[in-house]
Design a protein around this nucleic acid. Structure first.
Lengths: 253, 253
DNA sequence: CGGACGCATTAACCTCGGTTAAATAGGCCG
DNA sequence: CGGCCTATTTAACCGAGGTTAATGCGTCCG
């Protein structure tokens, strides 16, 4: 099945374009706006507080960023991770008030773009607007998948889904057994992302390992041994999921 | 405190404009697009399936709509309720594939607008675009609040938050003790919304009633007796929450 | 080299909330 | 009016996952 697809693709090549704000080929206007003031932050830095004034959007140029939200009692939830090429608009119903906390997970490089410049960019360049709309829709689809699992799925499903989602987002193109990637955060943070305690993240990973589905080593280097089994546990179809959460564009010809 | 505010408002009137797609004063283009083909659906009807082709956006004209998402094993989560004046774009990273199921909760009236017409409308009318952006940002802020609570909060917090959110969305303007509203769905559905079983929704409502915070009667007519206490349980500040999740616009003069 | 620190791992214990089931309470219709 | 259907309510039971705490292990640093 997978080989049939590959043969098919070889015969009828697929032009695949990954939408991203920092892909080559974007209008100079964006590149200019971005490169005019790239901004570096160390791992762990809070870039923006929840409720703070939010007059700019951020484009992630390199590194991982987390969008967090906390209850008054201190419990913190990671709403989403943002990867290079993605756009962070922290605004809420009041565009000037941030609904989330923005945190550098690793050392990051950001473009900070004032909201007005950003609006102008979107207005002037249809390609940027399209890319942004795809990326936003992809982000919402991911949020929906996670909301569903937080509401209705157990720990195994949540962890399996999180690993799969992050794998798909990190690896462009098709995915197969043996995919290997590094998650630049702790099991505690994986728990904050999946709504589980760090202890139970550990228990759950152990189970996935014992079943030969994944392996981990050296602080969150993940190896997916059996991606179909992982998708089975996560209750998704890998190809459908990729299509819904990864802002790619395929033209068969 | 509340009375001080009222006095203040009386002295320095607040011009408050609620952003909505069906507010009076919107350009005729939208009204035309909307009224050219209003579309009715009975309660319970599935308007769009998850994964289905999604070439149009929907504007809710009247009634309640739910956005659902289900796991293969059948567990269903209600991601959001959509109220009159709000816009539903079911698309995912692939704009033609719906990431969610769209269901009529009550009898509803919808405007079905082809994606291209919709894009044109947004392009031609800055006021519609602004309203849409506010509404979308408000929706994301709501999703964030819920994701946080699904991940980190117990049943009381979730239920209290859900009641508060729906109350704010239903009642324009300030909110106080004694607010009364009808939720047109069952406790089972409130459970699908908050990630709880219907039995536990019942238990949790009972507790809120025993503490004198809310009352219910006649299939989900809700009366909020003590909104500050409710907000305390929900772990929010009512005014901040309103500002972040309700697409209103205030101009003090 | 040795201590301190952060993270992962494991076990023991307990709670919140799911499941099942039975009882109650309206609406609706023949 | 009486049967039926659906939603709510309540109780009894149980299990997934949280909490706490102890242990191990690698890394950094004095």
């Amino acid at each position: 099945m997978s080989s049939a697809l590959e043969i098919n693709n070889a015969t009828h090549p697929v032009v695949e374009q990954r939408y991203s704000m920092i892909d080559s080929g974007l209008p100079e206007a964006l590149l200019h706006a971005i490169h005019s003031k790239p901004c570096n932050r160390d791992a762990g830095t809070i870039i923006k507080l929840e409720g703070e004034l939010s007059a700019s959007v951020f484009v992630v140029l390199s590194g991982w960023v987390a969008l967090n939200k906390a209850l008054p009692d201190g419990e913190k939830q990671i709403l989403d991770f943002m990867l290079p090429g993605e756009v962070i608009d922290p605004g809420s119903a009041d565009p000037l008030v941030s609904a989330v906390e923005v945190e550098a997970v690793t050392e990051v490089k950001l473009a900070i773009i004032p909201r007005e410049s950003w609006e102008q960019l979107l207005h002037a360049h249809a390609s940027i607007r399209t890319a942004h709309e795809r990326i936003t829709a992809a982000g919402q689809a991911r949020m929906s998948e996670r909301l569903l699992r937080l509401g209705k799925a157990n720990a195994q499903v949540r962890i399996a889904y999180a690993l799969l989602e992050l794998c798909l987002r990190l690896k462009t193109g098709s995915t197969s057994d043996g995919e290997k990637f590094h998650l630049p955060f702790t099991q505690q943070q994986l728990g904050d992302f999946t709504g589980l305690s760090s202890v139970h993240v550990c228990r759950t990973l152990r189970r996935l390992k014992r079943h030969g589905i994944v392996e981990t080593e050296d602080h969150m280097d993940v190896l997916i041994r059996d991606i179909e089994a992982l998708a089975g546990v996560a209750q998704v179809n890998v190809d459908e999921l990729r299509n819904q959460i990864i802002p790619n564009h395929r033209i068969n010809e």
